[in-house]
C-alpha cells in the first residue's frame, strides 16, 4: 500500500500470533487484507455479503465475518485464521474432531465452520456452560454448507463442546 496516500492509515495488529504493521486504505475489507495482502487463502469468500460464513475469522477469540469488517478496525486486535489453528505438525482439536467426524466434504465451508466452533468453545469455557445441541445449531446458522447436511459438523462441534 502506498505510504503517502491520504486514505491509507498505518495500523498494528496481530494475525495468528504474529504482529504486523501495515498501511491499509480505509475502504479495504478485512477479507482482502487476509487473503490478498497476507496471502492467507485458507479463509474463503462465498458471498461477500455476510450471508455464508465462509470468511469467518476470530477477532480476539470471537467469530466475525471478515467480508463485512473494515481492515482498519483490526488496529490493536488479534486475528486468528484457520492457518493459525494448527501449530507446526499439531492440528487444533476442532480440526481433528471435524476430520474424525467426517465433517469435511468439499471443504469450502470448513475453515469458517472451524472458526465458529472455536468461538463457541471459547465462549462456553468463559461462561463455564455447555451449550445444548439446539444452541450449537443456532451457533452454526451463519455458516452455510451445501455438502454435508450439517449433521456431522454439529456432531463434531458437540464433541468439542462437551469436552
Amino acid at each position: 500500500m502506498k505510504k503517502n496516500s491520504p486514505i491509507a492509515k498505518l495500523i498494528t495488529f496481530t494475525v495468528n500470533g504474529k504482529e504486523f504493521t501495515r498501511y491499509v486504505i480505509q475502504s479495504m475489507l478485512l477479507i482482502d487484507l487476509i487473503r490478498d495482502e497476507l496471502g492467507l487463502t485458507g479463509t474463503k469468500t462465498g458471498c461477500l455479503e455476510g450471508e455464508c460464513g465462509a470468511c469467518s475469522v476470530l477477532l480476539n477469540g470471537a467469530a466475525i465475518n471478515s467480508c463485512l469488517f473494515l481492515a482498519i478496525n483490526v488496529e490493536g486486535h488479534e486475528i486468528t485464521t484457520i492457518e493459525g489453528f494448527s501449530t507446526g505438525e499439531k492440528m487444533d482439536e476442532v480440526q481433528t474432531a471435524m476430520i474424525q467426524n467426517g465433517a469435511v466434504q468439499c471443504g469450502f465451508c470448513s475453515s469458517g465452520m472451524a472458526v465458529s466452533i472455536k468461538s463457541m468453545q471459547t465462549r462456553s469455557r468463559n461462561e463455564s456452560r455447555i451449550p445444548t445441541r439446539h444452541e450449537i445449531q443456532k451457533g452454526l446458522e451463519g455458516n452455510l454448507c451445501r455438502c454435508t447436511g450439517y449433521i456431522k459438523i454439529i456432531e463434531a462441534a458437540g464433541e468439542i463442546l462437551n469436552k
Partner: peptide, 17 residues
C-alpha cells in the same frame, strides 16, 4: 475419514479462488 480432509481443514487446499 477422507484422505484429503486434512489439507482442506488446515487451509492448505488450493481452490480455484
Amino acid at each position: 475419514p477422507k484422505i484429503d480432509a486434512g489439507i482442506r481443514i488446515t487451509g492448505k487446499a488450493v481452490y480455484g479462488q
